[in-house]
Write a protein that binds this DNA or RNA. Structure first.
Lengths: 342, 342
DNA sequence: AGATTCGCCCAAACCGTTTTGGATGCTGCA
DNA sequence: TGCAGCATCCAAAACGGTTTGGGCGAATCT
């Protein structure tokens, strides 16, 4: 069942039927009803391929997820971010196109997306400090919103980000207030922008109290349970080990906890840990009382916001690039306590 | 730059250019070279929207991910499965369309996908025992591959699944061989097919040794850290607590571990735990020596296989439904040990 | 009453490809 | 020489919608 057939069945022209269905004003309300009814009756749904060709719009947005060829890690926050974004897309009748590409092919992927015309815009995930994708997308004229920021890029662009620096500054201050002086930072890879901001927040807090940073207490690696464990174990074996940790994710935090418990110590009593909690649906930080003290910011909500900004940008590309800075809340859980006196 | 313009620039008809680019034999090899060169030079890429309309194929496959409205949990294995599948799709020039829908709208979502024609086939995730989507998809004539199976559906359909029953039987036998007699099962929701099969495997092993199952030692809930913790805590508080656990996922296992350590016990010494390990990239089960003893099967690999089967099915829809049963390997880690004598 | 506007509808062009059904000229063979 | 066969190319018709640019009668204005 297509437009033409529906039109002949109704004794109308395709033009009128199209207009009736799309809510144009120049069609009699009675015939509109008639058309609507017939469409429902014959279960007519306009062919998406034809619409896309006719309108020149893809009615779709792309998410390119690069797979690093060395360490093939899929970002675990991805699922929740996409769930949030997808919610918005389907509400606006847009499709979500996922492109999984080896990271060396990423630029080609964006160019192809543009010239083949199968998306109207893209979300950029996991920006680095001077992420080259931003310049590329501007160059090829593809609307985009970055999830995160790229500190070293001055020109304006659209983004949604958590205030990572402030969050980690507050978290560090919280630990300092509890009396901790040796605080280990278990961070993500520091060519990622968010990781750099978090370290900066941590250093800010130390500096504000006149404390020197110790390179041995700062780890930067992939955000897996295993690497969290490795980093914490190393630090705990130091002659002057940390009494508290700051971990960049729940998963890293789980690794830290394992390292702590391997040494027969107890979280929240012997060792304090604060994590950043992305509020992942499958990785909830406890039920009523949080497992970990955490800086929390829902990545799903970030996905929703990013999607909304992008759709807005697609609708009128001339708008100035929108930005949105989300504040993380500090929630107190069972994993922190005052510095135990030795 | 489009076909027509490229054609006039070359002094050829669109027909010939199209054929040259698509490798049809009825075009002179010299002119083909010329066309190819020009296409590269002008960076011409055929418009995907037009191709789709002209060929009637969507060149895309859909993944519908239902969001349960009550518990809004995104399946954490999703990211890795999709990464695997996406790898195959991009190799075959297909797009991956993600549809995030509230689960009560899922049927509509499939129908819409079909009648709007924006995919050629779909992957069905997380089948239940008598999953209604299978009948629906067959009815509307949409090629599909199920990730998992639906035990109560007799008619043939395409699927990729792990041998969950055998995996859990082996895991249980492994614990029994270590001397454990009270083994707690921390399972997923048992309207999910995989969860039922796993319980069956567990029960098989018990029955084979003439052991009675104890309902108090079987939990079934969402697969989150928190619910793993809750289930294990409850069981450990029993008058006759388990000495070993079988957990349906790494994340559940982490919850179990927390419950064990909450009671001051040590994994692998006081309490044994075997998990099912989906080999998620961000949740590796240790590096050289596995953290958990586990039945392992890569969900990413399953994604690759499912994608390949689906593309095959799309290419010739008349083929009999392909199926693939993957065996999990049992890997021995640090989380299991002989029954400590009381 | 005649001119103008308005409400409603339609024919045809268009989007950018693929595909159908020839057309043309050259080669080879009887 | 005549004709079939082949290699190579092309015009035009799809694909299924949207959009442009009217057309036509009835209502409104002057």
């Amino acid at each position: 069942m297509n437009l033409k057939e529906l039109a002949t069945r109704l004794g109308l022209s395709p033009t009128t039927v199209s207009r009736a269905l799309n809510g144009y004003p120049e069609v009699n309300e009675a015939t509109r009803e008639r058309v609507m009814a017939a469409a429902r009756r014959y279960n007519y749904r306009p062919n998406a391929r034809a619409i896309r060709l006719a309108t020149g719009r893809a009615m779709a947005v792309g998410h390119v997820i690069p797979i690093a060829s060395r360490h093939e890690i899929v970002n675990p926050i991805f699922a929740d971010f996409i769930a949030g974004a997808g919610e918005i897309y389907s509400r606006h009748d847009h499709d979500l196109l996922l492109s999984v590409v080896p990271d060396e092919d990423e630029h080609d992927a964006y160019r192809a997306l543009k010239s083949k015309g199968n998306v109207d815009g893209v979300i950029v995930h996991g920006p680095t400090l001077a992420d080259p994708r931003i310049a590329l997308l501007r160059e090829i004229g593809m609307p985009f919103v970055v999830h995160g920021r790229a500190s070293e890029i001055a020109a304006p662009y659209a983004w949604v980000d958590v205030n990572n620096r402030r969050a980690f500054r507050r978290a560090t201050e919280f630990l300092l207030d509890l009396g901790h002086r040796r605080i280990g930072l278990v961070n993500g890879l520091e060519f990622m922008d968010f990781a750099v901001r978090r370290r900066r927040g941590y250093l800010d807090a130390l500096a504000a109290r006149g404390l020197a940073a110790d390179a041995a207490l700062m780890a930067s690696d992939e955000m897996t349970e295993v690497s969290g464990h490795r980093a914490a174990r190393r630090m705990l074996a130091l002659p002057d080990p940390p009494t508290a940790f700051l971990a960049s994710s729940m998963i890293l935090g789980l690794g830290v906890r394992r390292a702590v418990e391997d040494r027969g110590m107890k979280l929240g009593r012997d060792i304090s840990v604060v994590i950043h909690d992305d509020d992942l649906s499958y990785m909830k930080n406890g039920e009523d009382v949080p497992i970990f003290t955490a800086t929390r910011s829902s990545v799903r909500q970030a996905g929703r916001i990013a999607a909304e900004l992008l759709l807005g940008l697609i609708a009128n590309a001339k708008d100035p690039a929108p930005t949105r800075l989300l504040e993380a809340e500090l929630i107190i859980g069972q994993s922190t306590g005052p510095l135990p006196h030795a």
